[in-house]
Amino acid sequence: IIKLVTVESIVPIAVKPTIGVHISELEKNEKGVRKIEFAAAGESPAGIEFYSWDFAYDAEKGFKPEVFIDKEGKQIYSCKAGLYHIAVKVVDNDGLENIETIKLKINGKIERE
């Protein structure tokens, strides 16, 4: 008897993790410097091992993390006025990874009420 089965029923197919990033402004000072919290949330059937952060991401140069192993997925970064390219990588317990890139523009003006 010959029975056709899908590959997935014999060998599980690995699925790379998904990732999303929430950005919150914590404070700003009189010089226009803003303290920003980045909170990454990854999902994977294998479970998340860690996150890595590159706060000066350049696609041509590749991912070069400043923070290599972040188990919680949260970072606080101080930003002056300007344009920032940030990347966060999630790695799951199977060693699969995914990267989310963020383009963040910080306005240096302080508005007084």
Score class of each variant (00 low, 15 high):
64 K>R: 12
78 S>I: 00
108 G>N: 03
108 G>W: 00
58 D>P: 05
44 S>T: 14
64 K>N: 13
81 A>V: 02
92 D>C: 13
70 D>H: 07
17 P>W: 00
22 H>S: 10
60 E>L: 06
30 E>M: 07
68 F>A: 14
43 E>F: 10
30 E>T: 10
5 V>E: 14
26 L>P: 03
8 E>W: 04
10 I>V: 11
37 E>P: 03
42 G>H: 05
31 K>F: 10
50 F>E: 15
111 E>Y: 00
50 F>G: 10
98 N>K: 12
28 K>C: 02
25 E>S: 10
49 E>M: 11
109 K>N: 14
81 A>E: 15
71 K>L: 12
101 T>Q: 09
88 V>N: 04
108 G>Y: 01
28 K>R: 15
61 K>A: 15
41 A>D: 10
33 V>P: 00
45 P>H: 07
55 F>G: 06
32 G>H: 01
60 E>N: 12
93 N>G: 05
86 I>D: 07
97 E>W: 12
45 P>D: 12
87 A>K: 01
2 I>K: 13
17 P>R: 02
95 G>L: 07
84 Y>R: 05
14 A>R: 14
11 V>I: 13
21 V>C: 03
22 H>R: 09
1 I>A: 13
33 V>N: 07
106 I>M: 06
66 E>D: 13
28 K>E: 09
78 S>H: 05
41 A>M: 10
52 S>D: 05
86 I>T: 08
75 Q>N: 12
107 N>P: 04
93 N>S: 10
5 V>S: 13
